[in-house]
Design a protein around this nucleic acid. Structure first.
Length: 587
RNA sequence: GCACUUGUAGCUCAAUUGGAUAGAGCACCUGACUACGGAUCAGGAGGUUAGGGGUUCGACUCCCUUCAAGUGCACCA
């Protein structure tokens, strides 16, 4: 629609002798209740025209109608100039743009972006919160890739630390040699079980010590289990063979389990980082900061940065004993990633409880003069809440990722069997379809919401399959495919004389796809894509009900509608792909 | 206490980044071609955009303030 904007700039110059920039022309979609497809807001021009908004709009409308063959008419309501674009223009859009092989395919923009997501701890299985993280990260990577970026998907695995030692210790003491093979339990779940066992036994000891007269605080410090776990961590750091062996075995179990869950979720990574390899990094950056005067040393030898001038606090970056803290490690990892990939941008998909941490991290790196720090971005997303409040692993109120996926599949099976449309499918095909539909429902449900908002998930109320949902969109796609399978497209440029409103509106929606991808990429927001595809599906279903395709009035119209249908199916399929959702041919 | 985020229909979410009478879905009510797939479509009802002030032609959107919810404020990660 740039040509409308350019012409409007000319109109203002011609009519009111004022030069404005294209950015000053506010163009929007015309609201459904009015005639036209695009609307120019003319209030701002009344300054130069010195006329009423209505008069200004009429004058510009007249100018556009005379100058542009594409403009077939206009109407003015208050400061809104609604412009009708000719059918010929929309048909041209359909045949020259939308059906072209390169529609919504962006040329490589020469920029490299890293998306870090998932980043699990290896002491427990993935839950609903991780699911949101994984789906967001994967979708954002897909969208950036579609927008022309070269994307590197990374996973920084938190595979070390006291929490890992807790699972290890509990297994050692209470595990009786259980393995995934011996129990048939998924490795991550088995290890998670012992993390819970640790917590239970630890609490028992605390109670005993309290009964013996210690305060809560003392008891927490003195309980034999926690001391053993701390000792185990020291041994791990010292490279004790037995501890390292156990650590590798148990982490191996967890990785096997994670791999299955990742596969079911349909996410993948180009590069894994492990904290066991990166936790010592960052010390040279501390030296660098000290030399440059960005950091300072306190009397006890600890190293700090003063961020009070930026409205933040003083922040410790190295302990007095010379060991790293969390942020030291993150500084080092950021440097490592940049050295390895030289990316222009780097997105961290991490929950909003770490907002402050990332604010500080990015600020420190900027103060250190790292030019690449400007490209760092924390994609912060809201917590997933249950109706009962926050998920708490200790209280058993977490929604487990594997359970959730299984439930979605079984709901999909139930709904599909009731409708009985795919009774000729083999069992294998059915299982695949149930997975596609179940995940479609779940992914769409989680991704349509603005990432920064918290999300409410009610496990008792199964995710809907009707209305504004993934399956609705998948159904629309399957239905189009069904129609297409009953006819052949023979005429690639069938131009009907008339264009019904429903047909034109569908074309208008389809033309917006590239811009939607662009906006979603800028905002790192899959929700924009999700809501858009829903608009496409709705517009298609409306068109479908209003017009017969296979029994069209004549062959020319039939060919046109087939083309329009095929184009809609492609946009739906590509758009859903950006969300990591598959669309079936039949369902 | 301080900082950040959020607050829109009974519920779950939108609103082209300052534009028109704030839109969808679910739930509720009323209808639809003996079918190209009814997991659909058309319609009805449902709102003081948490409250109050301000900025301007115009505010869900920006500023101030009050309230509510969440998160953070470790020499944990």
């Amino acid at each position: 629609m740039d040509f409308i904007i350019d012409a409007t700039v000319k109109a203002v110059k011609h009519l009111y002798q004022t030069t404005i920039t294209p950015a000053e022309v506010s163009l929007q979609e015309t609201r459904k209740e009015f005639e036209g497809q695009v609307t120019i807001v003319t209030f701002p021009f009344t300054k130069f025209s010195r006329k009423s908004p209505e008069q200004t709009g009429t004058e510009i409308g007249e100018y556009l109608k005379n100058e542009l063959t594409e403009v077939s008419g206009f109407n003015v309501i208050k400061g809104f100039l609604n412009i009708s674009i000719s059918n010929a223009y929309w048909l041209e859009q359909l045949y020259k743009v939308i059906t072209a092989a390169d529609f919504a395919v962006f040329k490589p923009n020469g920029k490299k972006v890293m998306v870090e997501y998932s980043s699990p701890n290896t002491n427990k299985p993935l839950h609903l919160g991780h699911v949101r993280n994984n789906l967001l990260g994967y979708s954002v990577a897909q969208i950036l890739s579609a927008a022309g970026y070269e994307v590197i998907k990374t996973n920084l695995v938190n595979d070390r630390g006291i929490h890992i030692c807790k699972s290890m210790l509990a297994w050692q003491k209470f595990g009786n040699g259980e393995t995934p093979e011996s129990t048939g339990e998924k490795g991550d779940h088995l290890v998670g079980k012992y993390y819970v066992v640790f917590d239970k036994e630890y609490k028992k000891q605390i109670e005993e010590l309290k009964a013996a007269g210690q305060t809560e605080e003392e008891a927490k410090k003195n309980a034999p289990l926690i001391k053993e776990a701390q000792e185990m961590l020291l041994q791990w750091e010292a490279g004790n063979d037995a501890v390292i062996d156990l650590w590798q075995t148990m982490n191996g179990w967890v990785y096997e389990g994670f791999a299955k869950t990742y596969e079911k979720m349909g996410v993948a990574f180009d590069k894994y980082y492990y904290e066991s390899n990166t936790y010592l990094l960052g010390k040279d950056i501390v030296d660098e900061g000290l030399a440059g005067g960005v950091f300072f040393k306190k009397a006890d030898g600890s190293v700090w940065i003063d961020l009070t001038a930026d409205g933040l606090d003083e922040k410790l970056v190295l302990r007095a004993d010379g060991t790293s803290v969390y942020i030291t490690q993150d500084m080092g990892t950021a440097q490592l990633k940049y050295d390895e990939f030289k990316m222009d941008e780097s997105i961290y998909v991490v929950g909003n409880e770490q907002d402050y941490h990332f604010k500080v991290l990015f600020l420190i790196l900027q103060k250190l003069g790292k030019t690449w720090a400007r490209g760092l971005f924390h994609l912060s997303y809201g917590m997933v809440d249950l109706p009962s409040g926050k998920m708490k692993s200790r209280e058993g109120t977490v929604v487990d990722a594997d359970d959730l996926i299984a439930e979605m599949e079984s709901t999909a099976r139930k709904v599909t069997e009731e409708l009985g449309k795919i009774n000729d499918f083999s069992e294998e095909e059915k299982v695949k379809l149930y997975h596609t539909i179940g995940m479609g429902a779940l992914k769409y449900f989680l991704l349509k919401v603005d990432p920064k908002k918290r999300l409410l998930f009610d496990p008792n109320e199964s995710v809907d399959f009707q209305g504004h949902t993934g399956p609705f969109i998948q159904y629309t796609h399957a239905r189009i495919k069904s129609v297409l399978s009953r006819a052949t497209i023979t005429n690639l440029n069938a131009e009907p004389r008339e264009l019904a409103a429903g047909e034109r509106d569908l074309i208008v929606v389809l033309t917006q796809f590239p811009e939607v991808i662009n906006q979603a990429a800028i905002a790192f927001n899959p929700g924009a894509v999700a809501n858009y595809i829903y608009e496409v599906a709705k517009a298609y279903n409306k068109f479908y009900h209003e017009h017969s395709i296979l029994q069209a009035e004549d062959e020319l119209i039939k060919q046109f509608r087939l083309q329009l249908s095929a184009a809609s199916a492609r946009v739906i399929s590509k758009g859903m792909n950006l969300l990591g959702i598959e669309v079936p041919e039949r369902m």
